[in-house]
Design a protein around this nucleic acid. Structure first.
Lengths: 337, 337
DNA sequence: TTGTATGCGTTATCAT
DNA sequence: ATGATAACGCATACAA
């Protein structure tokens, strides 16, 4: 028995009684394509309104094989792009009737527990937008058979157990490399991010390959193990602070904007140089700040809205065919490169 | 019957059979302070492990009066502080066993539907960190009696139907005002944000009062109706672009960092002036970028970790006493003011 | 300490 | 088109 003060829930039975129909008819009235006469539906809905009834999705999830709930596993909160992704994803999901369970993957040991945590809520799919999932964890999760769908969003993965929805990193990076070459840069420095699932470092490798194809030499590379502007700033500073002008790169190509923003700060405020005149900078993602008057960052924009909508398409699809998909974004030239 | 391919769920009954106990004993093994002998618990846990059993929280929520699930309603995604809040909150919640349902309040008409949406998942509490909730919506929600706890986080509210966990805006703003006065600024411009729940514009009003108490005149004020750096940049530009040097403020005090960052960009890149020499800028929140080499923003830091932990305390408290609480943060002086 | 009946609010399936 | 039966997986309350 619940506590005295908490007044009893209004259930479908209550509505049924009020409307003079059965509980199952009430259920049908709330379902889109149910075989129910418009008249009874009307009657039911009126009763429901007057009682303030809304279906209990928790009970619905228990009774059926679908919950209309997805888990979104996230980390890497220093990366401003994560906020944009959260907005786009939750908007697409909610506007099409899906709820989101947000799971903060607290640290590197927490990937598996986080995954388990999600599965305990009967989610219909688990979406990964973090960076702490390696193939080992993914395969373990798959083997445990706890997941209907495991989706890696905005990050290429070649793991056969997951659905990957991402931009075509190779095509994008080729476009970036061609842009850098066309603009006449000679001494690029590539700043990579942390390694992630199977296709890790795809961008870096593609850039290096393109550069080598053209100039027959490898570009210089450095890496940050988090997508954190401050960390990127420090690493760039360490790498460049003792160099003569001739030794400096003429452009720093960053794996994403989070790194690029920190790099620009270092160039300007710690090295006392100008962007792009002394060192140009190029990013990836097109975070909101990239467009602002301070950074004017040349970057590559992912079609996040389209990708989010496709993700919901995948959720709603019945068939078990492969749903991996690569999207094409576009280079947004601004003033930084 | 579920579809053929989806293998049957492992339930407490399965574990009970394997361990040779009853289903209810399995239940006890998974409960913290249950009266169960260490030996049987051990036996049950072994069986559970071998079968890969974990309790179904969906079913648990249905059967009990608690779900260990909270809804987090959010909007205002242009404000970088939201990402920090999301991280702190989900970390505190998850590390103490609470799950988070993230609800994107899509637009201003969506506040009530979003609230309803949350309630359908049997959440134990609803946390509001958005700006689209006015007293009308809150009172309606309260009257519908759908919410056990309605918590407004990081925003002062005087609505009697909600629990407000926030910094003491008046104390904080007084500290800010004293700092501005002590530093000898003469012509402040206050930039306010959107109006929100009952205590809206508390910061602006407190600053104006402090200033008036000291100099017997009102400070100039402008406002942005979203916490968006770009919008703040435009508004600041419009307000200042045609002024002579003597007409310009010597400091712009912003309701939060989201506004301050945009204001700094405008001062530097559109007005061609220096911060703080020509115009100083002061913020609120201490977002990550505030500490970076580019902005070096003087701002006021909220004790978000402490506040998040207190929020979980409130969730776990049984009593129905008032839980409103104001926290004290601290002013972080950097180079911008 | 352990076992048992009953209920949570819905949906799948079958019957009318 | 509507009604009825039996789960869904667990928790509460009580009995043993």
């Amino acid at each position: 028995m619940p506590k005295a003060e908490s007044l009893p829930n209004i259930t479908a039975d209550d509505v049924a009684a009020q409307a003079g129909v059965s509980r199952w008819t009430v259920n049908r009235a709330f379902k889109k394509d149910a075989s129910i006469s418009p008249k009874t539906r009307e009657k039911v809905m009126t009763a429901a309104q007057s009682l303030g009834y809304v279906p209990d999705l928790s009970a619905a999830a228990l009774a059926s094989t679908r919950s209309n709930l997805v888990a979104l596993l996230i980390d890497d909160f220093a990366n401003p792009h994560k906020l944009v992704m959260l907005e786009k994803l939750t908007r697409a999901l909610r506007s099409r009737g899906w709820d989101t369970l947000l799971v903060n993957t607290l640290d590197s040991d927490d990937a598996a527990p986080a995954l388990l945590n999600a599965s305990q809520r009967r989610v219909d799919a688990t979406i990964l937008i973090g960076i702490q999932f390696d193939d080992e964890v993914l395969n373990a999760a798959h083997d445990a058979r706890r997941f209907k769908k495991l989706i890696i969003f905005a990050r290429t993965s070649e793991n056969p157990n997951t659905i990957s929805i991402a931009v075509d990193d190779e095509a994008a990076t080729r476009e970036i490399a061609q842009y850098v070459i066309r603009k006449g840069y000679q001494r690029p420095l590539y700043m990579a991010g942390p390694r992630t699932v199977s296709a890790h470092l795809l961008r870096k490798e593609t850039f290096a390959r393109e550069w080598k194809d053209r100039f027959d030499r490898e570009p210089e590379c450095i890496a940050a193990d988090r997508y954190d502007p401050d960390l990127a700033a420090s690493i760039a500073h360490d790498a460049l602070k003792d160099r003569t002008a001739a030794e400096l790169p003429d452009i720093i190509v960053c794996e994403n904007d989070a790194l690029a923003l920190g790099v620009i700060d270092t160039i300007r405020h710690r090295l006392g140089l100008r962007v792009p005149q002394d060192i140009a900078v190029l990013g990836f993602d097109d975070v909101p700040q990239a467009a602002g008057h301070n950074y004017r960052l040349t970057t590559y924009r992912q079609p996040l809205t389209e990708m989010s909508n496709y993700l919901v398409d995948v959720l709603e699809s019945q068939d078990d065919t492969v749903h991996d998909r690569k999207f094409l974004g576009r280079l947004v030239p601004r003033d930084s490169a």
